[in-house]
């Protein structure tokens, strides 16, 4: 097996006296579709906050493409290829949908070099694949929840990431919308992007993931192929207990 794209080793994070992550270690391979589950408050968002650089971890290491990144500022990590969406969408409210993507194109990539017009076409192209093309010139503050979630994914994609982390992008979506986003993520994955998906909607996780990890109270309680994790007694207890 080749070296993993992302290697998290012995990661811990505390908020005051509260331990949100405790000795978390996980490898995600290049091109993998990885599901991250766990009851509310188990530390999923905190884990990806540490990986993306929105938070600093207290202990442990994070290797991305073989390099230690846990002391790098978030924007450098984005430029190296880690993009994310937020659980509660965080659009740039004063900008149009198109401009939101342009921020990612201007800043989120390893190198600059495209001319202004080319970047705009490209952003429209990305919006097209997300079904947001006709919203391009609308202020992002006027989007619906579903559209916001799609825009978050589009903005993350515009940074041309190697690893895309989606934090509950399907919460609040209808059945057909869930399928839509799921197909989209699978297509992105087929184009070579490694994807970590955090999700509470189990059938989506089952359909999407090649491998699943379950967190509970900041610790890993199960890891493996989806069905095995679902069948794990501790996973079931964690969810029933929650």
């Amino acid at each position: 097996m080749s070296a993993p794209l992302l290697r998290v080793a012995g990661l811990s994070k505390r908020f005051g006296g509260f331990t949100a992550l405790d000795d978390v270690s996980v490898d995600v391979a290049q091109g993998e579709r990885f599901g991250l589950i766990g009851p509310n408050g188990s530390g999923k968002t905190t884990l990806i906050n540490c990986v993306s650089g929105a938070l600093r971890n207290d202990g442990g290491t994070i290797l991305f493409a073989g390099e230690e990144i846990s002391r790098l500022p978030a924007f450098v990590r984005t430029r190296r290829g880690i993009a994310r969406s937020f659980q509660i969408p965080r659009p740039f409210k004063s900008m149009t949908v198109l401009e939101n993507l342009l921020v990612a194109i201007d800043f989120g990539r390893a190198g600059h070099g495209l001319s202004a017009d080319a970047t705009e076409d490209e952003a429209i192209g990305i919006l097209g694949t997300m079904g947001l093309k006709d919203k391009a010139r609308i202020l992002s503050s006027q989007l619906s929840q579903v559209e916001l979630r799609k825009m978050e994914l589009a903005r993350a994609m515009a940074a041309k990431p190697k690893l895309l982390i989606s934090d509950e992008a399907m919460a609040g979506l209808s059945g057909s919308e869930i399928d839509e986003v799921l197909d989209l993520l699978i297509r992105l994955n087929e184009a070579g992007i490694t994807i970590i998906m955090i999700e509470h909607i189990m059938h989506a996780v089952m359909r999407f993931s090649q491998r699943v990890m379950c967190l509970d109270a900041g610790r890993i309680i199960a890891q493996g192929v989806p069905q095995a994790v679902m069948d794990d007694r501790r996973v079931q207890e964690a969810y029933l207990g929650a």
């Binding site: 929105a54 978030a74 924007f75 984005t78 965080r90 740039f92 921020v103 989120g108 940074a159």
Partner: peptide
């Protein structure tokens, strides 16, 4: 608009 989101978008 949102400093954390900006930083995570590469700004």
């Amino acid at each position: 608009d949102d400093e954390t989101a900006a930083e995570c978008t590469g700004v």
